[in-house]
Amino acid sequence: MTRAVPVVLLIAAAMLAASPFMIDAAPPEVTMGLVQKIFYVHLPSAMIFMVSSVMCGVASAIYLMGGRSAKADRIALAAAELAIVFGLITLVTGPLWGRKAWGVWWVWDARLTSTLVMWLLYWSFVLLRRFGGAGSETLSAGVGLFGMALVPFVYWSVNVWRTLHPMTSVVPTLPASMGIPLWWDVVAFACLFGALFALRTRVERLRTDLDSALADADE
């Protein structure tokens, strides 16, 4: 998998280099104007945040139910770290957009609050792994399951509760002039996510190899 990383990174870099031109060519939204262009980075990062959360949750479930597989543990950890990175982008770009569009940086509505809680859960996953000591793999896998359980709640929250945040019906009804740059960025972010994920799991695998080699050397 790691052999494909440079190719995937190149594809992501080329797509991201072309992305500003496509975003510039997209028409501004009628009520929000120029600030709506934050959408083209906010939504792809939010999508990848949710994908990482699901990956972390599935890997955690496999770890807990499938005999403590080291591979599942590595996947869960890599996905949790990437959930933090893409979640950070989502949580930073959202308020920048909201300040102009809504007049406030933040509202404690269901969508924003649940997204923040989900992001903090992945911080707890990673901090638990770093400082939790022996057995933290099992505990963090439990946290990973809770994180995945939040994904449908975060997704549907805008349709169920009253909020300033746009509903999920926005994306399917986008005109092509806005939809093409959006899906272009989604694919670019997905390629970047794939490459970073492969690198992160490789780091963890090499660390395991190093620990085993050190243990063998001690014997």
């Binding site: 600030v35 934050i38 982008i89 930073v92 920048l96 690198l199 992160r200």
Partner: peptide, 29 residues
Amino acid sequence: LPAAPLVFIAYSLAWIALAFYAFTLWRKL
């Protein structure tokens, strides 16, 4: 409130976050 600085800051922060993470990953590797 002008929109252009907000858009600029949003994209800059996103690229900085991704570049920083990729750099730390490369160093760890």
